[in-house]
C-alpha cells in the first residue's frame, strides 16, 4: 500500500482551473520530483495534497485513510503527519530557531516546554544548526532559514514530506547546504514529493519525475527515459531550457 495517494485531484481558484485531475502515489521511502513551468499548478497541487486548500474534486489518502471525510480536528491531525516545506521558508519571525521548532511540539503535540526544546535542539543538530538554535530568523541566512524550516517539519515525525521549491528563493551559494540536507533525508528513507527546478539534483536522487503543465501531469517516468536526449518529451525540452539559462549565467 502506498504511504500517500492522491486520486483525481482538481482545484479551481478564482474561477480558474489550477489543478486538473491529478493522480499520484508515493511508496514508502520514495522520492518523486515534480517539475514544470511556473504557474503550472505545482504549489497548488502540493497544498491540495496537504489539505491547506481543500480539493474541489478527488481525495487524498494517507496510509489508506481518506482525508475527504475528516472533520476539522482530524484534518489538523492529518496535516501533522505530512511535513511541508515552503519556497520562502515561512519561519515564525518572532521566535528563535529553537522555538520555531518547539512551538508546534508544545501546541500541537502537547510536549512540555522542556521536552519540546530538547527535541528542537536535536532536530536543529540534525540539519547542522546546533550552534544557531538561539538566533532569530532575521539573524539567519536564507539557507539556514530553510534548514530550520526542515527541522521544524521533521520534529513532527511526518510520514511524508512535501517540498515546494525549497531552494528557489536562495542564492546559488546557499542552495548546496539545503540540498545536502534533503539528500540525507532521502537516503534515510523519508518519503518525499519535491517540486524543484534543480534538475541535476533531482536526477541523481529520484526514480520518477512528474512533469506538470497547465494543471495536468502530462508526462511521468524515470529521469533516464524522460530526460534522455532525443526522447522528444516536454520534460526534456523544459530541462534543456533550464540548463541553457543556467549556462548563460
Amino acid at each position: 500500500m502506498p504511504v500517500l495517494e492522491a486520486r483525481h485531484i482538481s482545484k479551481s481558484l478564482g474561477g480558474k482551473l489550477i489543478v486538473d485531475d491529478v493522480s499520484l502515489t508515493l511508496d514508502q521511502g520514495e522520492l518523486k520530483v515534480l517539475i514544470g513551468p511556473s504557474g503550472g499548478g505545482k504549489s497548488t497541487l502540493l497544498q491540495c495534497i496537504h489539505y491547506l486548500h481543500r480539493p474541489d474534486q478527488g481525495e487524498v489518502l494517507l496510509e489508506g485513510r481518506s482525508a475527504a471525510e475528516m472533520g476539522r480536528r482530524n484534518i489538523c491531525a492529518f496535516r501533522q503527519e505530512i511535513g511541508m516545506i515552503f519556497q520562502d521558508f515561512n519561519l515564525f519571525d518572532h521566535l528563535s530557531a529553537e522555538n520555531n521548532v518547539a512551538v508546534a511540539l508544545r501546541k500541537v503535540k502537547k510536549f512540555s516546554t522542556r521536552a519540546a526544546l530538547e527535541r528542537a535542539r536535536a532536530e536543529l543538530a540534525r540539519v547542522g544548526l546546533a550552534d544557531k538554535a538561539r538566533l532569530y530568523p532575521a539573524e539567519l541566512s536564507g539557507g539556514q532559514k530553510q534548514r530550520v524550516s526542515i527541522a521544524r517539519a521533521l520534529a513532527m515525525d511526518p510520514k511524508v514530506m512535501l517540498l515546494d521549491e525549497p531552494t528557489s528563493a536562495l542564492d546559488p551559494e546557499l542552495i548546496g547546504e539545503v540540498l545536502n540536507v534533503i539528500a540525507d533525508l532521502a537516503q534515510g528513507g523519508m518519503t518525499m514529493l519535491m517540486a524543484t527546478h534543480q534538475i541535476g539534483f533531482a536526477r541523481r536522487l529520484t526514480n520518477e519525475i512528474l512533469f506538470m503543465e497547465k494543471g495536468r501531469l502530462t508526462e511521468r517516468g524515470s529521469p533516464a527515459e524522460l530526460l534522455a536526449p532525443g526522447s522528444n518529451s516536454r520534460a526534456a525540452e523544459f530541462c534543456a531550457k533550464l540548463a541553457q539559462l543556467m549556462g548563460r549565467e
Binding site: H50, L52, M84, N90, V108
Partner: peptide, 14 residues
C-alpha cells in the same frame, strides 16, 4: 506574511 499562517496550519495548528 500570510505564509506564516499557512506554515502554522501545515504543522497541524488549529
Amino acid at each position: 506574511k500570510r505564509g506564516q499562517f499557512l506554515a502554522a496550519r501545515a504543522l497541524g495548528f488549529s
